[in-house]
Amino acid sequence: MPALDSIATIAVAMLAGSLRVSTPFLFVSLGECLTEKSGRINLGNEGVLVLGAMVAYAVSFETGNPWVGVLAAAFAGMLLGGLHGVMCSLARVNDVAMGIAIMLAGTGIAFYFGKPYVQPSAPLLPGIPFGFWLESDRFRNALLVSPLFLLGVAAAFGLHWFLRTTRAGLRIRIVGDSQDAALALGLPIDRTRLLATACGSALAGIGGAFLSLCYPGSWNEGLSSGQGLMAVALVVFARWNPINCVYASLLFGAAGALGPSLQTVGFTWGYYLFYAAPYAVTLIVLIATSHGGRSLRGMPGQLSIGR
C-alpha cells in the first residue's frame, strides 16, 4: 500500500505541477511561435517575461485589481517586443543579438523599477476551484486552476486557427516562409514582422503576469530563473505548432514537479538528476523525432538560424 500511495502522490503532484508551472512556458512559447512564424526570432522574451511579472505585480499593487496588472503586463511586453521589431527591421541587424540585448534590457528595467515592490504584497488572481466537490485537500488544491492557464489554452487553439485559416495568418506564414514570395505578392514584410513580434511579446508579458500574480505569486528578482529562454527552446520542441506548445508546456511543468514530489514520498536518491528531467525530456524527444536530412520539420524558412 505505501508504494501505491507514493505513486498516487507523485501522479497528483505531477498533474498539479503541470497545471501550476506550465502557464508561463505556454504563453512565452505561444508568443515566440507567432513571432517565429513571421520569420523572426525573439530571444528577448525572457526579458519580457521578467518585465511582465514586475509590471503586473506593481500595477496590481497600485490599483488593487490584478486583471489591470495582467493588461499592463501585456502592454509592457508589447512595447518591448515592438522595440525588438523596429530594431530588427533596420538593415543588417541580427535578430539573435538584438534579442539578447532586449533580454538584458527587460530584466534590467524590471529590476530597477521593481525594487520597491519586492516587499509589499499585491492582490493576486484567484484560481478557479474545479475540485470544490472533492473531499481531499490535496486534490482540491491540485485542481485550483488559474484563469490565465485556461486563457493560455484558449489562446493556443485560437492562434492555431488564426495561423491556419485566416488571411492574416496566411500572410504571416508567407512572410515567414519565403521572403521572395512575400515580395512578389507585395506583402508588407517589416510591418507584418513588427506586429507579430509585438503581439508575441504581449503574450509573453501575460506569462510574466502569471508568475507574479498566480504562481508562485510574488515578485522578486530570481522569479523567472530562465523560464523564458526554456520556452523559446520549447517552440522548436513543439515544431512551431501552437497546439503542441500546450502539450510541451504541460510536459515541462510535470517534469519540474517530479523532483520535489519524489523527495516528499521518501525517494531521495539523486534529486539533482530529477531536477534535470525537463532538459533530459527535451533531448530525448528531439533526438527521437528528428529525421536525417530534414531535421527541423516545420521550421519557418526565413528564420535566421535556418538560413
Partner: peptide
C-alpha cells in the same frame, strides 16, 4: 520531519513546488 533539497539558494518556482508537495503529503 521531511526534508526537500532544492539544490539552489534561490529558486522561487521550485520552492513553491516543494511547499505544495509537502502540504499535499499532509505536512
Amino acid at each position: 520531519t521531511t526534508v526537500i533539497f532544492t539544490g539552489e539558494w534561490s529558486m522561487p518556482v521550485k520552492e513553491a513546488e516543494a511547499s505544495n508537495s509537502l502540504a499535499d503529503q499532509g505536512i
